[in-house]
C-alpha cells in the first residue's frame, strides 16, 4: 500500500482540535464566519493578546496555530504558504511580522505557539463563556498566577490535617477489625 504519511501533508498541531468545526452563527453564512475568524487571527498577530468569547477564541486559535506552523515549515518563498498568509492576514504589514518576527520566535518551540486562558464571565450580563487568547513569548506581564507556597496556604494546611485525621480513623477501624477476626 503506497499511502502517504499524513504527518508529511499536514502540520501536527500541539493543541486539541475538535473533530467538528464550530459554525459560529452569522447572517452572511460560512463566508461571514471565515471573515470573523480572519479578523481574529489578524488581531492576534497584531496585538498578541486578545479577550474573546470562548467559542470564537478557540476556533481562531486552531487557524492561527496552523498558519504559524505552515510558515515555520515552508518559509516565505513557498507560494502556497504565502497565499495562505495573504488570506488569513487582513492587514498586509503583519505578513512581514509573521515571517520575520514570529517564525524566528517559534523556531525551537516544541509546544503550541498560542495559549488560552478561561476568563471570568461578566456578572450580571450576557452569559457567554469568555477567554483570553495570546501568542506565547509576548511582552505583556504573565497572566499565569503562580502559587509557589501551595502547601502553606491556609486551606491546604487545614485539609491536610483533616486527611491525616481521617486516615487515622480508618487505621483504627482496620486494627479493630483485625483484632475481632483474631479472637
Amino acid at each position: 500500500m503506497n499511502q502517504a504519511n499524513i504527518s508529511n501533508l499536514v502540520s501536527k498541531l500541539n493543541i486539541y482540535v475538535r473533530p467538528k468545526a464550530r459554525r459560529l452563527k452569522n447572517p452572511a453564512g460560512p463566508e461571514g464566519r471565515l471573515l470573523k475568524l480572519r479578523k481574529t487571527v489578524t488581531a492576534l498577530i497584531k496585538y498578541e493578546r486578545l479577550e474573546l468569547n470562548f467559542n470564537r477564541g478557540e476556533e481562531a486559535r486552531g487557524y492561527a496555530e496552523r498558519l504559524i506552523s505552515e510558515a515555520l515549515r515552508h518559509g516565505p518563498a513557498h507560494h502556497e504558504t504565502m497565499k495562505l498568509a495573504d488570506f488569513w492576514i487582513l492587514e498586509k504589514q503583519y505578513v512581514h511580522k509573521l515571517f520575520k518576527v514570529l517564525v524566528p520566535r517559534y523556531e525551537n518551540f516544541t509546544s503550541s505557539y498560542t495559549k488560552m486562558y478561561n476568563a471570568p464571565r461578566l456578572y450580571p450580563g450576557m452569559y457567554y463563556k469568555k477567554s483570553v487568547l495570546e501568542l506565547k513569548g509576548n511582552v505583556y506581564p504573565s497572566l499565569h498566577q503562580e502559587y509557589s507556597q501551595k502547601r502553606n496556604l491556609l486551606h491546604n494546611v487545614l485539609l491536610d490535617e483533616a486527611r491525616k485525621e481521617f486516615r487515622l480513623k480508618k487505621y483504627d477501624e482496620i486494627v479493630d477489625n483485625f483484632k475481632q477476626t483474631r479472637m
Binding site: 487515622l168 486494627v175 483485625f178
Partner: peptide
C-alpha cells in the same frame, strides 16, 4: 501533634 500521630499510624500499619 501531627508528627506523633503519623508515627502512631505507621505502628498500626505494622501491627496489621
Amino acid at each position: 501533634v501531627p508528627s506523633k500521630i503519623v508515627e502512631d499510624s505507621e505502628d498500626q500499619i505494622a501491627a496489621v
